[in-house]
Design a protein around this nucleic acid. Structure first.
Lengths: 160, 160
DNA sequence: GCTTGACCTCAAGTCGACTTGAACTCGTAG
DNA sequence: CTACGAGTTCAAGTCGACTTGAGGTCAAGC
């Protein structure tokens, strides 16, 4: 396969050209040259972008991702660090699992105030926000995994 | 317990005063009055803040959270919507689990390039980023949560 | 040779969730 | 009665990950 221009990379990965330029600027990907002004990319960039997407989906920052990616392969990062990342993710998963249970329970439980329900309280406790302590968790965003649902919202949300 | 001033709420929840004002401005919490200029909060605000923290920890936006919280209790939100949120979280968990596995495997696998390893590829596939399609997942941040160490191994809940 | 249109650069804008800073107001201790 | 310091307001700044817009370039088709 021959080198691709930015439009093709974009088409094949779904990543907008503007994002690809941004990634290049940040050093996450590299173009192999130019034809005139236009960037040329090696097909290998597709794989790299998949890895980047994986990291993003895992909630890692671009800087962290570039720290785990060598110029071409994956883990120049030592195994310890990778394992640490996995553990980090694991804790997140635990937390989210507890919250999911809290939500499910809240959807089902008849208690007038959720905090009066022991099951709910337990879930809250497990959620790791401490008893009533608020753990500074940082900006998550469990955004629509359903990619196609990002249509632009102006009309929706009739919030009470 | 008598009404608290902003400093006490802050102290007892760990939420900075600036954030409390911000939350009030956004309508997530309310003060019950003023003494001079100073806000007074009902102790119930602590519980509400715990719920808000729970939502934040679950990756929900403040707007979403306020949509699920009635002026005082929890779910004015219909059960369907709560269940939908739980499902959303569930998909996130699936994805993160796959990524965790990919990471763990990468830390262990001897393959020179991870994409050559079938196990890794499988994990990537499960991560839901499509084949090589990049799902725009949005800014996560699996930040250090380790506020309170979890002694109880949160055994529960079979995640696939 | 000229137009076209995809691509380029660089600066600025956006979004969410807060934080920070300047200028001001009070209740209270001395 | 005055000073102090905790609280207040409002505007602006920050951070990460991009997007948008204005204005410029260039390979290719007519």
């Amino acid at each position: 396969m021959k080198d691709m221009d930015i439009a093709e990379v974009s088409r094949r990965t779904g990543v907008p050209a503007s994002t690809l330029r941004y990634y290049e600027e940040k050093g996450l990907i590299a173009s192999v040259g130019r034809r005139g002004l236009r960037r040329l990319f090696d097909p290998a960039v597709l794989e790299r972008l998949a890895l980047i997407a994986l990291g993003r989906a895992g909630g890692f920052a671009l800087d962290e991702i570039s720290a785990m990616l060598t110029p071409d392969g994956l883990p120049q990062m030592d195994r310890e660090r990778l394992a640490a990342k996995a553990d980090e993710l694991d804790r997140t998963i635990q937390r989210l699992t507890a919250i999911r249970e809290a939500l499910r329970h809240a959807a089902r439980c008849p208690a007038p105030r959720p905090m009066e329900c022991p099951t709910f309280r337990r879930a809250v406790r497990l959620a790791g926000t401490g008893r009533f302590e608020v753990a500074p968790i940082g900006p998550f965003k469990a955004e629509a995994v359903s990619v196609t649902r990002r249509k632009r919202k102006t009309d929706d949300v009739s919030l009470a």
